[in-house]
Amino acid sequence: MIAKELLKGSLKSIVLKLLSENDRMYGYELTQKVEELTEGKIKLTLGALYPVLHKLEKEGALETEAVQVNNRTRIYYKLTQTGNSTALEKIKELEEFVQTINILLNPNLGLQPCTV
């Protein structure tokens, strides 16, 4: 399991990335997808996911659509026009972040001490 604190900053990017690859998704589907892709290492909780979804909707990156499924209302999210560019930006940002962290974690790459 990945710790919540590590996940916090990149949650937005993860959501945008998933939505950019799928036409429309609903909350539960998102959590399932993440769990499936990461083989259970990342579990999005209710409490973490929905605030972010609503925030993105408020910012205009996402739009919603209500559909009746099994006697209940399901809210689907999809990227808007602006959302597409935001997604690209955010994904790029996350990639950079991961690379930078990698450098930090392996600072001696190619500079192994000589053993004479």
């Binding site: 499924v69 209940r72 209302t73 809210i75």
Partner: peptide, 16 residues
């Protein structure tokens, strides 16, 4: 009461 959060929570719990 906020927006469509009520529907989402109900749906999410149901799916789970």
């Amino acid at each position: 009461t906020y927006s469509h959060l009520r529907y989402e929570l109900i749906d999410h719990v149901c799916c789970e």
